[in-house]
Computed example of a mutant assay.
Amino acid sequence: MTAVASGDQAAFGQVYDLLAVPFYRLVLGGPRREDGRTADRVALDAWTRVWRDAPLLLHGSRRPLSSAEAVAWIMNKAREQRR
Protein backbone atom coordinates (compact mmCIF):
# COMPACT_ATOMS: atom_id res chain seq x y z
CA MET A 1 0.00 0.00 0.00
CA THR A 2 2.95 2.31 0.47
CA ALA A 3 3.71 2.07 -3.24
CA VAL A 4 0.04 2.52 -4.15
CA ALA A 5 -0.16 5.57 -1.88
CA SER A 6 2.79 7.08 -3.72
CA GLY A 7 1.02 6.64 -7.08
CA ASP A 8 2.61 3.41 -8.29
CA GLN A 9 0.16 2.06 -10.87
CA ALA A 10 1.95 -1.29 -11.14
CA ALA A 11 1.58 -1.80 -7.38
CA PHE A 12 -2.10 -0.92 -7.64
CA GLY A 13 -2.42 -3.51 -10.40
CA GLN A 14 -0.89 -6.15 -8.13
CA VAL A 15 -3.28 -5.26 -5.32
CA TYR A 16 -6.18 -5.42 -7.78
CA ASP A 17 -5.06 -8.80 -9.10
CA LEU A 18 -4.88 -10.21 -5.58
CA LEU A 19 -8.20 -8.86 -4.32
CA ALA A 20 -10.46 -8.37 -7.35
CA VAL A 21 -12.50 -11.56 -6.86
CA PRO A 22 -13.31 -11.18 -3.14
CA PHE A 23 -13.76 -7.42 -3.62
CA TYR A 24 -16.29 -7.95 -6.42
CA ARG A 25 -18.09 -10.64 -4.41
CA LEU A 26 -18.44 -8.23 -1.52
CA VAL A 27 -19.87 -5.59 -3.84
CA LEU A 28 -22.32 -8.14 -5.28
CA GLY A 29 -23.42 -9.05 -1.76
CA GLY A 30 -24.90 -5.61 -1.25
CA PRO A 31 -28.52 -4.63 -1.68
CA ARG A 32 -29.88 -4.23 -5.17
CA ARG A 33 -29.44 -0.78 -6.58
CA GLU A 34 -32.54 1.24 -7.32
CA ASP A 35 -30.48 4.03 -8.82
CA GLY A 36 -29.58 1.90 -11.85
CA ARG A 37 -25.93 1.40 -10.97
CA THR A 38 -24.62 -2.04 -11.80
CA ALA A 39 -22.29 -4.07 -9.64
CA ASP A 40 -19.54 -3.33 -12.16
CA ARG A 41 -20.01 0.39 -11.72
CA VAL A 42 -20.14 0.09 -7.93
CA ALA A 43 -16.92 -1.96 -7.98
CA LEU A 44 -15.23 0.58 -10.27
CA ASP A 45 -16.26 3.42 -7.98
CA ALA A 46 -14.90 1.53 -4.97
CA TRP A 47 -11.56 0.75 -6.65
CA THR A 48 -11.31 4.42 -7.64
CA ARG A 49 -11.75 5.35 -3.98
CA VAL A 50 -9.00 2.89 -3.01
CA TRP A 51 -6.62 4.57 -5.48
CA ARG A 52 -7.66 8.09 -4.46
CA ASP A 53 -7.69 7.52 -0.69
CA ALA A 54 -4.53 5.39 -0.38
CA PRO A 55 -2.36 8.39 0.57
CA LEU A 56 -4.79 9.21 3.40
CA LEU A 57 -4.43 5.68 4.74
CA LEU A 58 -0.73 6.13 5.31
CA HIS A 59 -0.74 9.81 6.27
CA GLY A 60 0.51 10.22 9.81
CA SER A 61 1.15 6.51 10.27
CA ARG A 62 4.07 5.82 12.57
CA ARG A 63 4.62 2.30 11.32
CA PRO A 64 4.10 0.35 8.12
CA LEU A 65 0.68 -1.18 7.68
CA SER A 66 0.38 -4.92 7.98
CA SER A 67 -1.03 -6.80 5.01
CA ALA A 68 -4.13 -7.63 7.04
CA GLU A 69 -4.73 -3.97 7.86
CA ALA A 70 -4.36 -3.00 4.21
CA VAL A 71 -6.72 -5.74 3.03
CA ALA A 72 -9.30 -4.81 5.68
CA TRP A 73 -9.14 -1.17 4.61
CA ILE A 74 -9.55 -2.08 0.93
CA MET A 75 -12.47 -4.41 1.58
CA ASN A 76 -14.10 -1.74 3.70
CA LYS A 77 -14.08 0.51 0.62
CA ALA A 78 -16.20 -2.15 -1.13
CA ARG A 79 -18.61 -2.28 1.81
CA GLU A 80 -18.91 1.50 1.93
CA GLN A 81 -19.61 1.73 -1.79
CA ARG A 82 -22.43 -0.80 -1.81
CA ARG A 83 -24.53 1.23 0.64
Rank of each mutant, 00 (worst) to 15 (best):
G36L: 03
L44F: 15
T38R: 05
T48G: 15
G30Y: 04
D45E: 15
D40T: 00
L56W: 05
R62A: 12
V71F: 05
H59E: 11
K77C: 09
A3N: 09
D35P: 02
T2E: 14
R63I: 04
G29Y: 02
M75C: 10
R32A: 13
A68I: 07
Y24F: 10
A3V: 08
D17T: 14
R83L: 13
W73A: 02
R25V: 05
V42F: 10
Y24E: 06
F23Q: 02
Q9M: 15
A10R: 15
V50P: 01
R37Q: 06
S6T: 13
M75F: 08
V71L: 04
L26D: 08
S61M: 12
Q81N: 08
A72C: 05
L44H: 15
G13P: 03
Q81K: 13
D8F: 10
S6C: 11
Y24I: 12
V71Q: 01
Q81S: 13
G36H: 02
V50C: 03
G30Q: 09
N76S: 07
T48W: 06
D35C: 00
L57N: 03
V27C: 03
R41K: 10
V15G: 04
R79N: 13
G29F: 04
L19T: 06
A10E: 15
P55I: 00
A70M: 06
A10C: 12
S66P: 09
Y24W: 10
F23H: 01
V27T: 06
A5R: 02
V4K: 04
G60D: 00
R33S: 13
T48H: 08
R49A: 14
A46Q: 08
P64C: 03
A70Y: 04
P55D: 00
A3H: 12
A54N: 04
R25M: 05
A78G: 00
A46F: 05
L26E: 15
R25N: 13
R49L: 14
R33Q: 12
V21M: 07
L26K: 13
T38H: 01
